[in-house]
Amino acid sequence: MNTLLSYLENHHLIWRGRHPHGAADTQSSGYAVLDEYLQGGFPRHDVIEIDSPCGIGELRLLLPYLQQQETPRLLVFIAPPGLLSAELLLAAGIDLQQVLVLQPESDKDALWAAEQCLKSGSSHGVVMWHRQLDVHQLKRLQLAAQEGRASLFLFRTAQRIKVSLPVALSLQLRPHAQGLRVRINKRRGGWAEQPFTLDMSSHWPELACAPVPDNLLYLPVARAI
């Protein structure tokens, strides 16, 4: 039994409520509230799954983290569903000369590209949009991330998540007037959390809606004759 449990733990197929080996290797997400919920930040050199609708400002969640790197390495975007804003990346302090955008012809090619970018050591972060992965494919990506000391952020949507993957961290994002509504579905060494609001208005005030007072009454507007 102990041998079986050790095998499952070593292959990240089960999680303990509390991590038995002390603090995990994390790096600040750039948001104090999120770091508190994650007990330090995003796990480094691993796979992070994000369930998010497209176009709700989901990339803003990653920008403060992606701009943190000790030595210049590539930031790779694989199969983004739309055009990336160079102005947004530049304003976040990301060197556009270190940004690579790939549009593979198939899901298989996207997985191959992600694995090569991760394990090459030339990338510090890979952001990929993908429809469906199997566990054995995820394991290859996890090993590649550890080998190349890079992080993989995997965007998927709820309609396409059919299999729960043994990732280091799984987040769910939903839109919110002040930024994003975040739920931690699971994280290694911890439990799922209740949803909370990640206020991004101080980072991007022009994209935040003005808060509506709770006691504001609805008054009908008279129609002009």
Results as ranks from 00 to 15, higher is better:
82 G>L: 03
126 V>K: 06
49 E>P: 08
25 D>S: 15
172 Q>I: 00
192 A>N: 07
140 R>E: 10
206 E>L: 14
222 A>S: 14
16 R>I: 05
143 L>K: 02
32 A>D: 10
72 P>V: 04
197 T>M: 03
84 L>D: 03
220 P>H: 06
110 A>E: 03
113 A>H: 07
85 S>M: 04
33 V>H: 12
205 P>I: 02
163 V>R: 14
171 L>W: 04
16 R>V: 06
71 T>L: 04
116 Q>M: 15
34 L>P: 01
222 A>E: 15
66 L>F: 06
13 L>G: 11
168 A>K: 07
4 L>S: 08
55 G>F: 12
71 T>W: 02
109 D>Y: 07
30 G>D: 00
75 L>S: 01
77 F>A: 08
169 L>W: 01
50 I>V: 07
175 P>T: 00
160 R>S: 15
208 A>D: 15
65 Y>K: 00
135 V>H: 10
149 R>S: 12
156 R>D: 07
149 R>V: 04
77 F>R: 10
74 L>Q: 07
28 S>E: 04
122 S>Q: 15
37 Y>G: 09
147 E>Y: 05
87 E>V: 10
109 D>T: 09
141 L>W: 11
133 L>C: 02
103 Q>Y: 12
185 N>V: 14
55 G>Q: 10
79 A>M: 04
172 Q>V: 03
188 R>E: 02
30 G>E: 00
132 Q>L: 04
75 L>C: 06
179 G>H: 11
144 A>W: 05
24 A>F: 05
103 Q>G: 03
155 F>W: 05
46 D>N: 08
189 G>F: 08
91 A>F: 00
93 G>A: 01
85 S>D: 08
112 W>H: 12
65 Y>P: 00
161 I>K: 13
156 R>Y: 03
203 H>L: 15
63 L>Y: 08
124 H>G: 09
57 G>M: 01
156 R>Q: 14
130 H>Q: 13
93 G>K: 01
170 S>D: 10
13 L>K: 14
69 Q>I: 03
43 P>D: 08
208 A>W: 14
220 P>T: 06
92 A>I: 01
108 K>W: 07
142 Q>F: 07
112 W>A: 06
21 H>P: 05
207 L>A: 15
34 L>T: 04
84 L>S: 06
141 L>D: 11
28 S>C: 08
44 R>E: 05
50 I>G: 00
26 T>M: 07
34 L>F: 10
75 L>N: 02
84 L>M: 12
209 C>H: 13
219 L>E: 14
57 G>W: 01
116 Q>C: 13
200 M>Y: 00
199 D>K: 10
64 P>L: 03
140 R>S: 09
34 L>S: 09
192 A>H: 13
